[in-house]
Design a protein around this nucleic acid. Structure first.
Lengths: 216, 216
DNA sequence: ACCTGAACACCGTTCAAGT
DNA sequence: ACCTGAACACCGTTCAAGT
């Protein structure tokens, strides 16, 4: 049957040393690889080639592709949290507005992070690295200090967060043309409208003051 | 080399007649198949088996898996639009609330439709079957009749739509535990809070009246 | 302990027929 | 015109080594 002559050759990548790869390198390489290819198209063999390792080596550190993408999501979350600037603003309204403006800008500018965090490509664990977001905690405290009850403050956060993610999703999937055939304002203006609107709705829930201008 | 004895047999599905499948059947079969398997895991060979056709037959009607899923999305949109009840409510606030409550309930109750329409699994065309949603048009007219400018009415729609989709997304991917470790209200209550809040924010934009109760 | 190619069962898609 | 199995290049994952 004529043995296939062993024309292996291929590329002759040399065998790598024992400690030459680790999870962090793989994840970093995966992020780098995804600057070219959308996550949903990431392939283990191609990632291995990009990293210059055998495919099987990746499986030494990650049980499955799913687990690798989960790890990427965790990494994306950490980097997202870290890049969120400290709370700024003269009052709770401004702090809220600035917080979600940063949220929107950060994820809007990074398709990969947006896919991982908002669209949840790997759609995994109930929790993982989600909670423990000190900045959000701080924001809730601000709201409570302003007079909101704790459950109210949580509702406010969830509303704004869902809205922001919804806008990111709608832009990301290009369905923004639902009711906007002609004119239509630029994305960030559209986003700002909703945030302003939600915040002014929240102000109405406060026991007293805040009705007029809390400007100074 | 001992020819493989032609143990074809397999299942002996009989060849189907000429007109025995059509796009509608395939899409219907795909929806049926997805009652068992998430869309993201749909496989052409498995769908073909489910439909009792050769895989290649599907390719006669759909150029690719992507095109098939796009067609499913169109179908999901049409069925979604059709299942939206007519506008109801004594005033624009109630109409808005009821519209988005139906939006939320309809997609929240159907994982597949939610994946196709909100998460956009096939993430395709700029438009497709998106526009031409008479019910939304009607809603915009209601808002305009209530005193909103046309761009304002559009903004309101986009805000509420993004929020609703964001909530669906957040629930669907189970990240609702962001800031909600303990207590946390049921999903629909959470949703209602945001809608109420957005609507009361919108009321503030109206030139006069609507400040107090527009109840009767 | 860590890195590896070959192999397995599958996938999306195309080809070259069959009717 | 429509339906089909076999075949192709790929994928995710595992096995059985190599060092």
């Amino acid at each position: 049957v004529a043995a296939p002559a062993k024309t292996s050759a291929k590329q002759g990548r040399t065998r790598r040393a024992r400690g030459s790869i680790n999870p962090a390198d793989i994840i970093a390489g995966a992020f780098d690889y995804c600057r070219t290819t959308p996550v949903e198209e990431l392939s283990m063999p191609q990632l291995a080639a990009h990293l210059k390792v055998g495919v099987t080596s990746i499986y030494w550190y990650f049980k499955s592709k799913r687990e690798l993408i989960d790890a990427m999501t965790d990494e994306a979350l950490v980097s997202f949290y870290e890049s969120m600037p400290p709370l700024q603003g003269a009052n709770w309204e401004e702090k809220l507005r600035n917080f979600f403006a940063s949220f929107y800008e950060l994820l809007g500018a990074d398709e990969l992070k947006c896919d991982l965090i908002v669209r949840r490509i790997g759609a995994h664990s109930e929790e993982g690295a989600i909670r423990a977001w000190p900045r959000a905690e701080e924001l809730l405290e601000t709201l409570i200090a302003a007079g909101f009850s704790a459950p109210m403050a949580r509702h406010a956060f969830v509303t704004l967060s869902a809205y922001t993610q919804g806008i990111l999703l709608v832009e990301r999937t290009g369905q923004s043309s639902v009711v906007m055939r002609e004119s239509a304002s630029p994305a960030s203006e559209e986003f700002a409208f909703g945030i302003t609107n939600i915040i002014s709705g929240l102000a109405l829930l406060l026991p007293r003051k805040g009705r007029k201008g809390a400007v100074a």
